[in-house]
Amino acid sequence: MAEITYWEAIRRAHDEELANDPNVIVMGEDVGLIGGTYKATSGLFQKYGEQRVIDTPISENSYTGIGIGASMAGMRPIIEIMSINFALLALDTLINAGAKIRYMSGGRATCPFVMRTPGGTAHQLAAQHSARLARVFMSTSGLRVVTPRGPLDACGMLKSAVRCNDPVIVIEHERMYNMKENIPDHEFFRPLEGAEIVRRGTDITLIGYNYSVYLCLEAAKRLEKDGISAEVIDLRALKPIDRETIRRSVEKTHRVLVAEEDEAAVGVGSEIISTVIEDCFFALDAQPVRIHAADVPVPYAENLEKAAIPNAEDVYKGALKVMGRI
């Protein structure tokens, strides 16, 4: 075991997969010579050469399309989009082509590519660098969407994403790249499906994904001091959703809160609470609560940005509301 950062974990997954399969290539803006804006591919250009770690021009839609085209001919591209905001430019090739080619060819053509991108607010990056957009991808048939919360999943899920035969969208978070976690020295994989119970509890289920898992964990600690035992679930995969794990937890705790960094409308929280209502409505002892961003484009000023994005305090208070304490 060794403690490594999130970006080092991603770099290790790239390195192992490039070494494992000559058809694996990496492409994106500054992924090569510079080694990636978040260092996630550092040194790989030097190790595997410019044919396999490809610096692209700033043409998101078409370099994503080139990756998808290559995947139809047997390649295994890992496509990096520097910020999920820029992935909007590539939605045509991602959604109209990547997500649909298998289906509209009756399963005869496949495109096993991976698209990695950081989504979320970092530090005063303002509206055009702070989008989250998980909901866009999780509502698209034909994609898998995963949200590794730490180095273990960042490495193990990326490796699984490269090996599996489906298009996989990996949503990272700019505030997680320097987080550390112990991960095994030997090669390992983490599955692309299945939520994970990251803290056991009996009174309320707090559900997060990506960075909001940490808000839930922090809130759970504070709730413990109030005598409330919170269970925390990391969704890990937004498509498909692990309804079984959610249902079993809510049937135990009878209360549920979903924390997301995105705006509420048509979002992850809406989807999760819908599944709770469909699957275990009668297990609920209180109305569910969503913790989410304000309905504004993310502002620049530090105090406004802070106010726009949910924090652990918001999750804590939301949980108290579910518990009927406030």
């Binding site: 399309g65 085209g69 001919a73 390649m75």
Partner: peptide
């Protein structure tokens, strides 16, 4: 859309 897909096939 076939422009980039074709270039991707060629890349392969």
């Amino acid at each position: 859309q076939p422009f980039p897909l074709a270039a991707g096939l060629a890349l392969a």
